[in-house]
């Protein structure tokens, strides 16, 4: 009679090993997040106490609302910047993805190569010349400057992802539409756009996560009006004399939870996008 391999001694050991490995993976990935989220719901005086029963409360969120209006303006700014950067990046990437998918020439090959090489440059380098220019144009501390910067740093990855997706749309569809007298712009709008929605979603996810969380550009180019949520968070850490831990954890939780839910919901598209474009371009 065959025995279930799980019940042999070596099978049991293997099962146990797997269980331990999974537990470690979960503790590593979720532990730090769980710590902050649960602390956000803990009364400030209990947070660092040991052996106190957990009494869930919203008082940290209430305190955040009352004392850090700045943070909520920051969330609104983050939202505006994220939406703007996503629209700009998805639009330019889809157009370019179509161009690079349907035409071939030395110029196009050279320019797509340049796109990929430019993406590899460290963002902080471009802040040096941009800082005085942005000031001179009066764009300092505006949503526009962040929208343009974020879109620019993702348009190259976005174009590669879109090209990969549009390559999979059969050219026969373009040709059939052309026979029916459709112009190029009509082919793009009526044939390509509807069929490349999946790719657009993948690009949008990258930009959304990046723009919502970005720190460096927000730190250098915004001071007051367009300050994003991560920047306000960093100011809360920075007030070293009196960090209000409960409020800080509440703010971290509020900034994190929507984007975390979004990433979990879009898991499939995120993985597709990463494998379609991240490594190829």
């Amino acid at each position: 009679m065959p025995t279930d391999p799980a019940f042999t001694p070596s099978g049991l050991m293997r099962l146990l090993g797997k269980a331990v490995a999974v537990a470690l993976v979960l503790a590593w990935s979720l532990g730090p997040i769980a710590l902050i989220v649960s602390a956000a719901f803990t009364p400030e005086r209990d947070i660092f106490a040991t052996g106190v029963a957990w009494r869930p409360t919203f008082e940290n969120f209430v305190a955040l609302w009352q004392r850090w209006g700045d943070f909520f303006t920051g969330l609104a700014n983050s939202f505006i910047v994220t939406v703007g950067a996503t629209l700009l990046a998805v639009l330019t990437s889809t157009l370019a993805g179509f161009g690079y998918s349907r035409w071939r020439s030395r110029f196009l090959s050279g320019s797509v190569f340049a796109m990929i090489a430019l993406r590899l440059l460290p963002p902080i380098v471009t802040t040096l010349p941009l800082f005085p220019i942005v000031n001179a144009l009066g764009l300092n501390d505006t949503h526009a400057v962040l929208i343009i910067l974020y879109a620019a740093f993702f348009v190259s990855l976005g174009t590669m992802v879109m090209r990969t997706f549009i390559d999979q749309i059969p050219r026969e569809l373009d040709e059939a539409a052309m026979m029916d007298g459709a112009s190029q712009a009509q082919i793009f709008r009526r044939v390509i756009l509807p069929l490349s929605a999946q790719g657009m979603v993948a690009v949008a996810i990258f930009v959304i996560v990046y723009a919502w969380n970005e720190f460096l550009f927000a730190f250098i180019f915004t001071t007051k009006n367009a300050k994003t949520a991560p920047l306000v968070l960093s100011e809360m850490i920075g007030s070293l004399e009196g960090v209000e831990w409960g409020v800080l954890f509440a703010a971290t939780t509020v900034q994190l939870l929507p984007i975390l839910a979004f990433v979990v919901l879009c898991q499939r598209h995120l993985i597709e996008g990463l494998t379609a474009g991240a490594t190829k371009g």
Binding site: L35, N213, I259, L270
Partner: peptide
């Protein structure tokens, strides 16, 4: 699927958020 979602979770965390978490730990 659920486990992969858990593994992906840190991808959603901002650098600022991660600093808050790890300096608290």
């Amino acid at each position: 699927k659920l486990l992969i979602a858990a593994v992906l979770a840190p991808y959603a965390v901002s650098e600022v958020g991660a600093v808050v978490m790890w300096r608290t730990l």
